[in-house]
Design a protein around this nucleic acid. Structure first.
Lengths: 240, 240
DNA sequence: TGTACATCAGTGAACGCGCGTTCACTGATGTAC
DNA sequence: TGTACATCAGTGAACGCGCGTTCACTGATGTAC
């Protein structure tokens, strides 16, 4: 009588009863529909009733799975953060280098896969709203991955064709970098030197700059290829 | 019988009748309240009824001034674009240099003055919505100012303390810059060289990157000063 | 200067809509003996 | 294996709300003679 997919570990520790499995399934479908809705109409249009209708259920039924609209919203935001953090960590752990460039491309792919999910995290804030506390922990995870990657690289890339003296302060010491030496609470436990902190922030803000404008459609009509602009910014980050 | 403020040019060409003046006044107040509402609750919360209530009028009264919610929204977006374009042109025309750095600071001031106005233009797009056509003309104005400013500067800044040969291709020629030479429709009538195009785009995307994350509150908790990060990015743009 | 008329700002009632959310309920599924 | 009970997913009716928008109307303001 055992169905193909549900046999083996069916009674292992942490196994779910049929009811629990069903619950998880429905919860997952609610979220799927929610993402579809957000992709189609934006996050502010998220509606429990509309999701229920699309699932062929009555509105109140969803209250078995989420305490209300806010909880669903919160969960989606959490999942978005989690997804990006996982993506980054997977890149990091993967054999394919896992360096800064790989992270940049992973970020772009992740954002293009679902623009509204990207905007849910990094887009226009709703004035009143405060993200759930545990998402800040995930933000830290994300930043940490970036700090790790940048810490691997030498502060001044080896200019192989150059025969200038290997002075670290070849470029004028950035005041911001000095400022970071004293204001690095956000990288509290991390041994990254100020230069890595600075480059991590530049990585974040520059790639976000290109990506968010691209995803928002600000480049439509201009006929250049946003991917090349992204690449140029990445190259510049690696050179500097 | 003439009132103090309404005497002199009262009958000049283009003078407004009292009714016309009143209309303009009320229209302006509607927009003011609309901006307040957007600043407080975000653009998606814009509501004619709420504005009317706040003005001590009934909802339908506003239909004397705007055809509907969409028209008001459109007008606000237009005004936002117009305001930024005017700000840029004023900087350009002003005696205080009016160079790239001045434009950058004007942009930051403009954005900080009303973050939600900034996001109305450059923030998360509402999937269905298309900005009114004439705003793209204003976008062109804005980009043109930037192109003008960047065209003034030499492609390679004079490295006064350096005695290297004045080779233009000191840094590897960016593939993106070459790409722009062939894809410059967005700068159609402008004589700016590809390097200026590239730097204009970098100016836009990098400053937007810092600004939008700052305005969105992504730096809160990190204890550094966003103004210094902005300044660092600006310096880097000027150096490169 | 005074009267007759046109313009037009604003009101209040009403429409249909979709929203989040509650509540008492039905009926199926799972559990205990 | 069969019966009695508990759990719990889902329904349908209902609540109050605010929204955009329409309509017929009142009353004040401006215009023409």
């Amino acid at each position: 009588m055992a169905e193909p997919g549900t046999t083996a570990a069916g009674t292992a520790a942490g196994a779910k009863s049929p009811r629990e499995r069903y619950r998880a399934q429905v919860r997952a479908e609610i979220k799927e529909r929610a993402w579809e809705q957000i992709a189609t109409s934006g996050a502010s249009a998220l509606s429990l009733n509309a999701i229920a209708k699309r699932m062929g259920m009555s509105g109140p039924a969803l209250y078995r799975y989420f305490a209300g609209r806010d909880e669903l919203m919160t969960e989606l935001i959490r999942d978005a953060y989690r997804s990006l953090a996982d993506t980054f960590q997977a890149v990091r752990a993967s054999g394919s280098g896992g360096g800064v460039a790989a992270l940049a491309h992973a970020l772009r792919d992740w954002a293009l896969a679902d623009p509204q999910r990207y905007f849910l995290i990094y887009g226009t804030p709703v004035p009143g709203y405060h993200a759930p506390d545990d998402t800040t922990a995930i933000s830290v995870e994300i930043v940490t991955v970036l700090l790790d990657a940048w810490s691997e690289l030498p502060s001044d890339p080896p200019a192989s064709t150059s025969d200038r003296p290997a002075s670290t302060s070849d470029r004028p010491a950035a005041p911001f970098e000095e400022h970071l030496a004293d204001h690095r609470q956000w990288a509290a436990g991390h041994p990254a030197p100020p230069a890595a902190l600075r480059r991590t922030m530049a990585f974040w803000t520059r790639l976000h700059g290109v990506l968010s404008l691209e995803l928002a459609g600000q480049f439509t009509g201009m006929d250049f290829d946003p991917a090349l602009l992204f690449e140029a910014e990445l190259e510049d980050l690696l050179r500097d």
